[in-house]
Protein backbone atom coordinates (compact mmCIF):
# COMPACT_ATOMS: atom_id res chain seq x y z
CA UNK A 1 0.00 0.00 0.00
CA UNK A 2 1.08 3.58 -0.48
CA UNK A 3 -0.09 6.77 1.18
CA UNK A 4 0.33 10.51 1.10
CA UNK A 5 0.84 11.83 4.62
CA UNK A 6 0.23 15.37 5.84
CA UNK A 7 1.97 15.45 9.21
CA UNK A 8 2.15 18.33 11.69
CA UNK A 9 5.79 19.25 12.29
CA UNK A 10 6.76 21.61 15.07
CA UNK A 11 10.30 22.08 16.37
CA UNK A 12 9.35 22.89 19.97
CA UNK A 13 6.66 24.52 22.12
CA UNK A 14 7.69 28.02 21.09
CA UNK A 15 7.96 27.42 17.35
CA UNK A 16 5.23 27.84 14.79
CA UNK A 17 4.27 24.45 13.40
CA UNK A 18 3.19 23.52 9.87
CA UNK A 19 2.05 20.54 7.86
CA UNK A 20 4.70 18.67 5.87
CA UNK A 21 3.76 16.28 3.06
CA UNK A 22 5.38 12.85 2.85
CA UNK A 23 4.84 9.97 0.43
CA UNK A 24 5.26 6.47 1.74
CA UNK A 25 5.29 3.19 -0.18
CA UNK A 26 5.69 -0.45 0.81
CA UNK A 27 3.19 -0.24 3.71
CA UNK A 28 1.30 -3.46 4.48
CA UNK A 29 -2.28 -3.59 5.73
CA UNK A 30 -1.24 -5.41 8.89
CA UNK A 31 1.10 -2.65 9.99
CA UNK A 32 -0.20 -0.60 12.89
CA UNK A 33 -0.38 3.15 12.41
CA UNK A 34 2.62 3.57 14.70
CA UNK A 35 4.62 0.96 12.79
CA UNK A 36 3.85 2.90 9.63
CA UNK A 37 5.25 6.02 11.33
CA UNK A 38 8.32 4.05 12.48
CA UNK A 39 8.78 2.95 8.88
CA UNK A 40 8.51 6.58 7.71
CA UNK A 41 10.96 7.66 10.42
CA UNK A 42 13.47 5.02 9.27
CA UNK A 43 13.49 6.57 5.79
CA UNK A 44 13.73 10.09 7.28
CA UNK A 45 16.69 9.08 9.47
CA UNK A 46 18.42 7.42 6.52
CA UNK A 47 18.05 10.68 4.60
CA UNK A 48 19.46 12.60 7.56
CA UNK A 49 16.12 14.28 8.39
CA UNK A 50 14.61 14.74 11.82
CA UNK A 51 12.20 11.85 12.54
CA UNK A 52 8.57 12.61 13.40
CA UNK A 53 8.17 12.71 17.20
CA UNK A 54 5.12 10.99 18.68
CA UNK A 55 4.28 9.35 22.01
CA UNK A 56 3.90 5.61 22.51
CA UNK A 57 4.52 3.00 25.13
CA UNK A 58 2.58 -0.26 25.46
CA UNK A 59 1.27 -0.45 21.87
CA UNK A 60 -1.65 -2.57 23.02
CA UNK A 61 -4.21 0.10 23.87
CA UNK A 62 -3.85 0.19 27.63
CA UNK A 63 -1.33 2.88 28.49
CA UNK A 64 -2.93 5.92 26.89
CA UNK A 65 0.36 7.31 25.58
CA UNK A 66 -0.37 7.31 21.87
CA UNK A 67 -2.58 10.21 20.93
CA UNK A 68 -2.93 11.13 17.27
CA UNK A 69 -5.72 13.01 15.55
CA UNK A 70 -6.03 11.20 12.24
CA UNK A 71 -8.20 12.43 9.36
CA UNK A 72 -10.29 14.59 11.67
CA UNK A 73 -10.86 11.97 14.36
CA UNK A 74 -9.17 11.24 17.69
CA UNK A 75 -7.35 7.87 17.39
CA UNK A 76 -8.30 7.60 13.72
CA UNK A 77 -11.02 5.93 11.71
CA UNK A 78 -12.23 3.09 13.97
CA UNK A 79 -14.25 3.12 17.18
CA UNK A 80 -13.04 2.03 20.61
CA UNK A 81 -9.38 1.56 19.76
CA UNK A 82 -6.31 3.65 20.50
CA UNK A 83 -3.96 4.93 17.78
CA UNK A 84 -1.58 2.00 18.34
CA UNK A 85 -4.38 -0.46 17.52
CA UNK A 86 -5.27 1.23 14.22
CA UNK A 87 -4.17 -0.98 11.31
CA UNK A 88 -3.29 0.43 7.92
CA UNK A 89 -5.89 -1.81 6.24
CA UNK A 90 -8.50 0.62 7.62
CA UNK A 91 -7.30 3.17 5.04
CA UNK A 92 -7.77 3.14 1.27
CA UNK A 93 -4.65 2.51 -0.78
CA UNK A 94 -3.35 5.85 -2.06
CA UNK A 95 -5.35 7.86 0.48
CA UNK A 96 -4.09 11.14 1.90
CA UNK A 97 -3.87 10.88 5.69
CA UNK A 98 -3.81 14.03 7.84
CA UNK A 99 -2.04 13.54 11.19
CA UNK A 100 -2.21 16.16 13.94
CA UNK A 101 -1.47 16.27 17.67
CA UNK A 102 -4.28 16.81 20.20
CA UNK A 103 -5.12 20.50 20.09
CA UNK A 104 -6.33 22.34 23.17
CA UNK A 105 -5.19 25.34 25.18
CA UNK A 106 -4.55 22.96 28.10
CA UNK A 107 -2.52 20.56 25.89
CA UNK A 108 0.32 22.68 24.43
CA UNK A 109 2.19 20.99 21.58
CA UNK A 110 5.80 20.47 22.59
CA UNK A 111 7.14 18.76 19.48
CA UNK A 112 5.57 17.49 16.22
CA UNK A 113 2.76 15.17 17.30
CA UNK A 114 3.36 15.36 21.04
CA UNK A 115 1.03 17.46 23.19
CA UNK A 116 1.79 17.97 26.86
CA UNK A 117 -1.07 16.29 28.73
CA UNK A 118 0.09 17.02 32.26
CA UNK A 119 -3.12 18.98 32.79
CA UNK A 120 -4.89 15.63 33.26
CA UNK A 121 -2.42 14.69 36.00
CA UNK A 122 -3.10 18.02 37.71
CA UNK A 123 -6.84 17.26 37.71
CA UNK A 124 -6.07 13.87 39.30
CA UNK A 125 -3.94 15.55 41.96
CA UNK A 126 -6.88 17.85 42.77
CA UNK A 127 -9.11 14.98 43.87
CA UNK A 128 -8.68 11.75 41.91
CA UNK A 129 -7.74 9.71 44.96
CA UNK A 130 -9.16 8.34 48.20
CA UNK A 131 -7.84 9.44 51.60
CA UNK A 132 -6.86 6.31 53.51
CA UNK A 133 -4.10 5.33 55.83
CA UNK A 134 -1.91 3.23 53.57
CA UNK A 135 -0.84 0.18 55.55
CA UNK A 136 -0.59 -3.41 54.47
CA UNK A 137 -3.07 -4.60 51.84
CA UNK A 138 -6.48 -5.15 53.48
CA UNK A 139 -8.39 -8.43 53.40
CA UNK A 140 -10.14 -8.50 50.00
CA UNK A 141 -13.63 -9.28 51.22
CA UNK A 142 -13.71 -7.09 54.31
CA UNK A 143 -15.59 -4.35 52.40
CA UNK A 144 -18.50 -5.88 50.48
CA UNK A 145 -19.05 -4.50 46.95
CA UNK A 146 -22.06 -5.54 44.88
CA UNK A 147 -21.49 -7.10 41.50
CA UNK A 148 -23.34 -4.21 39.76
CA UNK A 149 -21.26 -1.53 41.49
CA UNK A 150 -18.05 -3.39 40.74
CA UNK A 151 -18.99 -3.71 37.05
CA UNK A 152 -20.08 -0.07 36.72
CA UNK A 153 -16.97 1.14 38.54
CA UNK A 154 -14.82 -0.98 36.24
CA UNK A 155 -16.54 0.50 33.15
CA UNK A 156 -15.28 3.89 34.34
CA UNK A 157 -11.93 2.66 35.64
CA UNK A 158 -10.86 1.48 32.19
CA UNK A 159 -10.20 5.13 31.24
CA UNK A 160 -6.57 5.25 30.12
CA UNK A 161 -6.31 9.04 30.40
CA UNK A 162 -5.26 9.53 26.79
CA UNK A 163 -7.19 12.78 26.37
CA UNK A 164 -9.09 11.72 23.24
CA UNK A 165 -12.23 13.12 24.87
CA UNK A 166 -10.62 16.57 25.00
CA UNK A 167 -9.48 16.30 21.37
CA UNK A 168 -12.86 15.06 20.12
CA UNK A 169 -14.79 17.75 22.00
CA UNK A 170 -15.52 20.94 20.11
CA UNK A 171 -15.10 22.75 23.45
CA UNK A 172 -11.89 20.90 24.45
CA UNK A 173 -13.68 19.75 27.58
CA UNK A 174 -12.16 17.09 29.81
CA UNK A 175 -15.57 16.15 31.24
CA UNK A 176 -15.49 12.51 30.14
CA UNK A 177 -12.08 12.02 31.74
CA UNK A 178 -13.15 13.71 34.99
CA UNK A 179 -16.47 11.85 34.91
CA UNK A 180 -14.71 8.49 34.51
CA UNK A 181 -12.48 9.16 37.51
CA UNK A 182 -15.28 10.53 39.70
CA UNK A 183 -17.63 7.69 38.73
CA UNK A 184 -15.01 5.00 39.28
CA UNK A 185 -14.36 6.13 42.86
CA UNK A 186 -17.93 7.19 43.72
CA UNK A 187 -19.29 3.73 42.90
CA UNK A 188 -17.01 1.98 45.38
CA UNK A 189 -17.41 2.21 49.16
CA UNK A 190 -13.81 3.37 49.66
CA UNK A 191 -14.34 6.38 47.41
CA UNK A 192 -18.00 7.09 48.15
CA UNK A 193 -17.30 9.16 51.25
CA UNK A 194 -15.43 11.90 49.39
CA UNK A 195 -17.38 11.65 46.12
CA UNK A 196 -19.03 15.08 46.12
CA UNK A 197 -16.01 16.92 47.46
CA UNK A 198 -13.94 15.14 44.81
CA UNK A 199 -16.33 16.19 42.02
CA UNK A 200 -16.17 19.81 43.16
CA UNK A 201 -12.37 19.84 43.38
CA UNK A 202 -11.74 18.08 40.05
CA UNK A 203 -14.24 20.25 38.14
CA UNK A 204 -12.74 23.41 39.66
CA UNK A 205 -9.28 22.28 38.57
CA UNK A 206 -10.52 21.36 35.09
CA UNK A 207 -12.04 24.84 34.69
CA UNK A 208 -8.92 26.51 36.09
CA UNK A 209 -6.65 24.74 33.61
CA UNK A 210 -8.55 26.18 30.63
CA UNK A 211 -10.56 23.17 29.48
CA UNK A 212 -13.95 24.07 28.01
CA UNK A 213 -17.30 23.00 29.39
CA UNK A 214 -19.31 20.02 28.23
CA UNK A 215 -22.22 20.65 25.84
CA UNK A 216 -23.27 16.99 25.76
CA UNK A 217 -22.49 16.46 22.06
CA UNK A 218 -21.42 12.83 22.82
CA UNK A 219 -18.39 13.20 20.52
CA UNK A 220 -16.10 12.12 23.40
CA UNK A 221 -18.04 8.92 23.99
CA UNK A 222 -17.73 7.85 20.35
CA UNK A 223 -14.03 8.70 20.12
CA UNK A 224 -13.05 7.28 23.52
CA UNK A 225 -10.82 4.25 22.85
CA UNK A 226 -12.42 2.56 25.87
CA UNK A 227 -16.02 3.47 25.01
CA UNK A 228 -16.68 5.28 28.30
CA UNK A 229 -20.34 6.25 28.44
CA UNK A 230 -22.02 9.66 28.77
CA UNK A 231 -23.88 8.21 31.75
CA UNK A 232 -20.70 8.80 33.77
CA UNK A 233 -20.95 12.51 32.89
CA UNK A 234 -24.50 12.43 34.26
CA UNK A 235 -23.14 10.91 37.49
CA UNK A 236 -20.45 13.60 37.71
CA UNK A 237 -23.18 16.25 37.27
CA UNK A 238 -25.21 14.63 40.05
CA UNK A 239 -22.26 14.50 42.40
CA UNK A 240 -21.38 18.12 41.62
CA UNK A 241 -24.92 19.50 41.91
CA UNK A 242 -25.45 17.72 45.22
CA UNK A 243 -22.06 18.75 46.60
CA UNK A 244 -23.70 21.54 48.59
CA UNK A 245 -25.63 18.83 50.46
CA UNK A 246 -22.54 16.92 51.52
CA UNK A 247 -23.18 15.53 54.98
Amino acid sequence: MEFKLKIWRQKDARSQGRFVDYSITGVTGNMSFLEMLDYLNKTLIEKGDDPVAYEHDCREGICGSCALYINGRAHGPADEIATCEVRMRLFKDGETIVVEPWRAKSFPVIKDLIADRQALDKIMQAGGFISVNAGSAPEANSIPVSRESADDAFDAAICIGCGACVAACKNSSAMLFVAAKVSHLALLPQGRKEARKRALAMVAKMDELGFGSCTNTTACETECPKGISMTHIARLNREFLLSGFQT
Partner: peptide, 15 residues
Protein backbone atom coordinates in the same frame (compact mmCIF):
# COMPACT_ATOMS: atom_id res chain seq x y z
CA UNK B 1 -10.24 26.48 25.04
CA UNK B 2 -8.80 25.68 21.59
CA UNK B 3 -6.81 28.61 20.22
CA UNK B 4 -5.27 26.54 17.41
CA UNK B 5 -8.00 24.67 15.54
CA UNK B 6 -7.62 21.24 13.97
CA UNK B 7 -6.98 21.37 10.22
CA UNK B 8 -9.54 18.65 9.63
CA UNK B 9 -12.49 17.70 11.82
CA UNK B 10 -14.85 14.82 11.13
CA UNK B 11 -17.78 14.64 13.55
CA UNK B 12 -20.06 12.77 11.15
CA UNK B 13 -19.93 9.63 13.28
CA UNK B 14 -19.48 11.10 16.71
CA UNK B 15 -22.14 13.74 17.28
Amino acid sequence: ARPQKFAEVDTSRSS
